[in-house]
Simulated scan of single mutants.
Amino acid sequence: MNVGFIGTGTMGSLLIEALIASGALSPTQIAVSNRTFAKAQALAIRYSGMKAEFTNAAAACGCDIVFLCVKPLEFKKAVDDIKPVIRPDQIVVSITSPVLISHLEGELDCKIAKVIPSITNHVWSGASLCIYGQSVDEDDKTLLEDLLSHISQPLRIDESFTRIVSDLSSCGPAFISFLLEQFVDAAVEETGIGREEALRVASAMLLGTGLLLTEGGMTPAEVQERVAVPGGITAKALNMLRRETDGVFNQLIRTTHDKFKEDLAKVSSAFIGEEVNGQ
């Protein structure tokens, strides 16, 4: 299997590096291109055998799967670049949430999918959210999900839930890391504990909590119930948190959805010449 990556920015390079490190792909199976060729070339130098191509068309040509890892407003140009060389049996995969399956199906005569990766894939963990176009059959889905399973848990979702599942899976690590950082900062400020020590303890706690919620089979409510003895220290602190954070995550979701709708309108304008309100 040969795989092309158009765009070697943060998420493109993360996917490439994780797939190589996990053994899912060898560098010789990968072709890359980037708006700045030197970045693609640097990656190819790092991984001997990888092909750095000057054009997006060259990176896509002859590949079984082509990942489009570019920013929303760069998508139309990338699609126009590869359109002349794409074959019907190839799978083109967008990793950008505001780019709809219908946008790509309207431009490319091939099989279309969308995958929302996560930074957690860097350590072969977390989910890869998979959305498929009409021409993608079960064998195609299995091929793509087998590849992604080396670095994640592939989960099939409906495109109408793209934004919210992206909030939970892809943006979530940033949100949870922010909260953990605030927790550690407060611990240092209030008690004088060393930052490295506090972060080490808090990070181990976060890992353990994740395992309780997955392998341990507990729900968030069950974790809280098991830790918070009625009338105890944790229970009192949880009551304070409930009061102080009431509605904050509703606001967070509204914020991400508003930005998504803004980006979707711009992408739709680029592809079909008109703005849409989202879905």
Rank of each mutant, 00 (worst) to 15 (best):
209 T>L: 07
211 L>I: 05
182 Q>H: 10
172 G>P: 02
187 A>C: 08
209 T>N: 12
165 V>N: 13
179 L>F: 03
189 E>T: 11
204 A>E: 15
167 D>R: 10
211 L>S: 13
155 L>M: 13
197 E>Y: 11
156 R>P: 00
190 E>D: 12
167 D>F: 00
212 L>A: 04
214 T>H: 14
176 I>M: 08
183 F>Y: 13
214 T>D: 15
172 G>R: 03
155 L>W: 11
195 R>N: 07
164 I>E: 11
206 L>W: 13
215 E>T: 06
209 T>V: 07
156 R>W: 05
191 T>W: 09
175 F>D: 07
194 G>A: 08
190 E>N: 08
167 D>A: 06
158 D>A: 06
160 S>K: 15
162 T>G: 01
173 P>G: 00
166 S>H: 07
209 T>D: 12
187 A>S: 12
186 A>E: 14
188 V>A: 03
178 F>K: 14
169 S>Q: 05
208 G>D: 13
186 A>C: 00
188 V>Q: 05
159 E>L: 04
207 L>V: 13
158 D>K: 12
194 G>S: 06
174 A>T: 07
176 I>C: 00
191 T>Y: 07
176 I>Y: 06
185 D>V: 01
158 D>I: 07
156 R>E: 09
163 R>W: 09
183 F>E: 08
204 A>C: 08
157 I>E: 14
180 L>P: 06
207 L>Y: 15
166 S>N: 11
214 T>K: 15
168 L>P: 02
181 E>Q: 13
162 T>I: 14
169 S>L: 02
196 E>A: 06
210 G>T: 11
185 D>N: 09
161 F>M: 12
174 A>G: 03
185 D>S: 03
194 G>R: 15
197 E>Q: 13
159 E>W: 08
212 L>Y: 03
196 E>Y: 09
196 E>H: 12
190 E>C: 01
209 T>F: 04
168 L>Y: 13
197 E>F: 04
208 G>I: 00
193 I>F: 04
177 S>W: 10
204 A>F: 02
189 E>Q: 14
189 E>F: 06
181 E>Y: 00
187 A>L: 07
192 G>H: 13
202 A>V: 03
176 I>K: 07
159 E>A: 09
177 S>F: 03
180 L>A: 11
196 E>C: 00
198 A>E: 14
181 E>N: 07
154 P>G: 01
160 S>M: 10
162 T>C: 05
205 M>P: 04
212 L>F: 03
215 E>Y: 08
171 C>N: 07
202 A>D: 05
211 L>A: 08
156 R>F: 03
178 F>Q: 12
211 L>E: 15
168 L>E: 10
174 A>E: 11
157 I>A: 03
177 S>A: 08
186 A>H: 15
213 L>F: 06
214 T>I: 05
207 L>N: 14
206 L>Y: 10
169 S>A: 05
212 L>Q: 13
191 T>R: 15
183 F>M: 09
171 C>R: 02
193 I>S: 01
216 G>R: 14
187 A>N: 14
178 F>D: 10
202 A>K: 00
174 A>F: 05
178 F>A: 11
195 R>W: 04
187 A>G: 15
210 G>Y: 09
191 T>M: 01
190 E>K: 14
207 L>Q: 14
191 T>K: 15
209 T>A: 05
194 G>W: 10
214 T>N: 14
167 D>I: 02
198 A>N: 14
196 E>L: 06
165 V>I: 04
212 L>P: 08
193 I>G: 02
191 T>H: 07
